[in-house]
Design a protein around this nucleic acid. Structure first.
Lengths: 253, 253
DNA sequence: TAAGATTTGTTCGTATGTATC
DNA sequence: GGATACATACGAACAAATCTT
């Protein structure tokens, strides 16, 4: 039996989990920043009075949450590492794996958030940013000639929205919009892709994106909001025609 | 695009991480549901050809993500466990620990999402649900007489919104709204709480909530949206007067 | 290039804790 | 209480990665 720790017999959480919490507190108390070094394995064994295996399990817990990174060799060790946006999206997607999220749910959100994003960005983008968005919008000047092409254009359109969101100064808005784009890209299956071709809807969608960039360029916030709202309507219609559904799956990091 | 760039010569990911992925795939391939049993440690050692320690580290990774739960004893072992909403919120909060999220950012989202929630719920709630919301809205009939009381009323108001969101049929909307409420509850510090007292704003907020429940009861979607929008305006003003700020911290599960 | 040093990565044997029967 | 089946934890040894000289 350990000499110091076990006064509480019924602690439910396993030792590695508790050690992981202690390490987290240790870091917060010292206000360590990204890149700062944590104690080595052997130091932690001393520090927390547990075995090497337990320390390692605790580190894997923190690593899985994206809070630390680890390197081998001299000068190696574990370091505070900020949670990457991709990891955050994957972890959140794990949660929705067990919910039944639908295309309609996502579009209910997109219909209010994307216009908000567009309005907030009007007049705020730099020339290079506007040019980049314009280039993204002007890809695929011709309607799709096959299912594969239609799929490609879908992905390109989502990339347009995802990229646009990255310019927002609001981290939460940024995250949610690009999260939805990623879910749509990775988890959508189309039952009626290119059957029949939806030329008009595709055409309208393309014009929307081009007009949107123009509105952002001249700083017309209301127009940007309006165009984006209309664009979302169209995109949702297209998804309905294609009988799009979400597939239950884990998305990688 | 820090996406899939890792086609490094040697697999950079450590063995426990790879084993964790294999286990995840193993589960998905067999379409195991919540509560289903995973192979025991010794079986996994055989199955993946690694040692006990490695298996255990892999399990801690999956456990940290909320994907499995583990019990000791006979009939024990590891089981598929759906990611809890609280864990998902904590993991997402870890991400925003490293972003600089502001009160203004959160309110930009609340101002569009909460009215959307309210509108969608009009006429959809059962009598018990409406009564519960009414009870929550009618708490604290008197204005706060101290900072402590004002803080309590704040928390109560956030609980109102969090609870309301749980009635939504949209899992994403539900999650985001209650996530924001939790961040505001756990991470906000007020520089000018109750100094001076904001009686009018408090009064208006209380009336908003009561009127909102009434609008939900009679199924007036437009009114519900409008009231909630106005309520959010008021709440944001209150936060500004109190010079509310977000504190960098990890929030527990 | 090579050797040595340092730190994490992995394995194995053994012992202990815990829940069920 | 005892037997059992399982996870939990420890410690010692060795492997691999990576930096320095």
């Amino acid at each position: 039996m350990d000499e110091k720790a076990n006064i509480l017999p019924k602690s439910k959480r396993s030792r590695p989990v508790r050690v992981a919490d202690e390490i987290k507190n240790w870091v917060v108390e010292r206000d360590l920043q990204q890149g700062d070094k944590l104690p080595s394995e052997t130091e932690m064994i001393e520090l927390f009075g547990v075995s090497k295996g337990t320390v390692r399990e605790a580190m894997r817990i923190l690593e899985a949450q994206g809070l630390i990174v680890t390197r081998t060799g001299p000068g190696g060790g574990s370091f505070v590492g900020k949670v990457s946006v991709d990891r955050a999206k994957s972890l959140l997607a794990n949660y929705f794996y067990f919910q039944d999220l639908s295309i309609a749910d996502i579009y209910q959100m997109r219909k209010v958030l994307e216009p908000e994003l567009a309005a907030g960005l009007a007049g705020k983008l730099t020339e290079p940013q506007l040019d980049e968005m314009q280039a993204l919008a002007e890809r695929y000047p011709e309607p799709a000639k096959s299912s594969e092409e239609e799929m490609e254009q879908h992905v390109a359109s989502l990339a347009f929205h995802s990229r646009l969101s990255e310019f927002s100064g609001n981290p939460l808005l940024r995250f949610i919009i690009s999260f939805m784009a990623r879910v749509l890209r990775e988890m959508t299956i189309y039952r009626k892709l290119y059957d029949p071709p939806n030329i008009e809807l595709w055409q309208r969608g393309r014009e929307h994106q081009i007009n949107l960039v123009q509105a952002l360029r001249v700083g017309d916030s209301d127009a940007a909001r309006q165009i984006m709202a209309s664009h979302m309507q169209g995109a949702e219609q297209l998804m309905k025609k294609q009988e799009a559904q979400l597939k239950r799956r884990f998305i990688g990091e």
